[in-house]
Amino acid sequence: MMSTSLLLLSFLLAVTAAQGASGFRICAFNLHHFGASKASKNDVMITLARIISRCDVCLLQEVRDSKGTALPKLLETIKRYDKQNKYEALASERLGRTESYQEQYVFIYRSNTVKVTDQFQYPDNLPGDEDAFSREPFVVRFSAPRTSIKDFVLIPQHTTPTNTTKELDALYDVLQQVRKMWKNENVMLLGDFNADCGYLAKKNRKHVRLITDSSLHWLIPENTDTTVKLTTSCSYDRIVVHGERFYRAVVPSSAQPFNFQQEYRLTEEQALDVSDHYPVEVLLEVVSSRAFNGVISFTSSFAVFQCLSCIIYHLILL
């Protein structure tokens, strides 16, 4: 009886693996002061490569590569780690109100599954609300033929903790400008929003249009811990999608943080060397070409046939 149960379990796992292989993963990861110092640590770079190579598109934040050497090294490490896919990087200019502290938004993406079709550095000059952001969004439009929506826009944001409420509300203006400019309703906003704990008071949420507009769906559940430290439990990192079509394209319950400390069996100290944030991620449903569907269908069917054969053979022996 126990053997039969194990065979049934292997059958279900095989089918799940065959079906789940087709997901398109979008991630956002705050790398916590990523620059030459962190890039010099081989174990950290390997862990970053393992994390980022899980994603078709990965937004990186807190890239502070003033020497311009850390990002190329990271990209090369990813390419060496995952030779089955092709990777490219697209970086914003260095952003910040002071020369002493600046960051870049960076998108690392699989060029064999997704293409960049446009980009836009938000000028942050809305009349009456100029200079709303410390690090204004670097907006990128992607074409992903395997996904059910084909074409979508990503708006990244790493808010300043002391100005979270205002910056989150100002993101709504960015969203409206991008929708109008590119005539595209498939927009995702993502990043370290600092949208919890002491940085976004509950009493202020009613003043944030990004929260109150019913056309926007916040995918990372409230009270989800996206921080590495055991002493903190905050939902800082978020993913928000605009519109019902984009929302329906999301694999249900797939939006979550990726606990790389647990997955790779790291100590808290080792994990903090990588970052003090977990990446957040979401899967988009894939509608493949006929040929690709045939491969997946064959793979799924073969897995089902193989496991059913095992079960039938076992039952005959009983």
Score class of each variant (00 low, 15 high):
residue 213 D to T: 13
residue 119 Q to P: 00
residue 216 L to M: 07
residue 286 V to D: 12
residue 267 T to K: 06
residue 27 C to H: 02
residue 86 K to Y: 04
residue 82 D to N: 13
residue 191 G to C: 13
residue 124 D to W: 12
residue 269 E to G: 03
residue 180 K to Q: 08
residue 87 Y to T: 12
residue 184 N to K: 01
residue 114 V to I: 07
residue 8 L to R: 15
residue 60 L to S: 08
residue 215 S to D: 13
residue 230 L to K: 13
residue 15 V to E: 03
residue 268 E to H: 10
residue 90 L to D: 09
residue 63 V to N: 01
residue 93 E to Y: 06
residue 31 L to C: 14
residue 281 E to N: 14
residue 59 L to Q: 02
residue 176 Q to H: 13
residue 130 E to I: 02
residue 117 T to Y: 08
residue 128 G to A: 04
residue 48 L to F: 12
residue 26 I to T: 05
residue 311 I to T: 06
residue 3 S to L: 14
residue 168 L to G: 00
residue 176 Q to L: 11
residue 253 S to R: 13
residue 218 W to H: 13
residue 60 L to I: 03
residue 188 M to K: 00
residue 55 C to N: 00
residue 130 E to M: 15
residue 21 A to C: 08
residue 18 A to N: 09
residue 94 R to C: 04
residue 67 K to Q: 05
residue 315 L to T: 11
residue 84 Q to D: 10
residue 122 Y to T: 05
residue 151 D to I: 05
residue 15 V to P: 01
residue 57 V to A: 00
residue 215 S to K: 06
residue 73 K to A: 12
residue 165 T to I: 06
residue 14 A to G: 15
residue 143 S to D: 11
residue 100 S to N: 06
residue 36 A to N: 11
residue 210 L to C: 15
residue 69 T to Q: 11
residue 312 I to P: 01
residue 102 Q to M: 09
residue 5 S to K: 09
residue 238 R to V: 07
residue 130 E to G: 02
residue 75 L to I: 07
residue 43 D to I: 09
residue 248 R to H: 09
residue 283 L to K: 15
residue 204 N to R: 04
residue 70 A to I: 07
residue 257 P to M: 15
residue 146 R to T: 07
residue 152 F to Y: 15
residue 166 K to N: 14
residue 185 E to W: 11
residue 79 K to R: 06
residue 136 E to V: 05
